[in-house]
Amino acid sequence: MSDLKLRVKDMIIERLKLEGMTPDQIDDGAPLFGDGLGLDSIDALELVLGIEQVFGVKIEDEAAGMKAFKSVQALTDFIAEHAKV
């Protein structure tokens, strides 16, 4: 697992208080909302705030969110693309 992907998963677990879940239990390709992790709109806001705080990346609107929240892999790619390192 890439270092960034692991950090993304750790952030998701911590921010959404998915207690008892480990990074390797989160499928890279599964959707974050709906059938995958089953997150809701409040979780989406928490993730947006977490991503901004931890990675300094802003998800400006719902269109960007749709793209970024497709899966953990998509979110990792989105952060890698937008992070100012």
Binding site: L45, V48, L49, E62
Partner: peptide, 10 residues
């Protein structure tokens, strides 16, 4: 205001 996304505000 502490953040907003998708119609939800914190």
């Amino acid at each position: 205001a502490a953040g907003a996304f998708g119609g939800i505000m914190k």
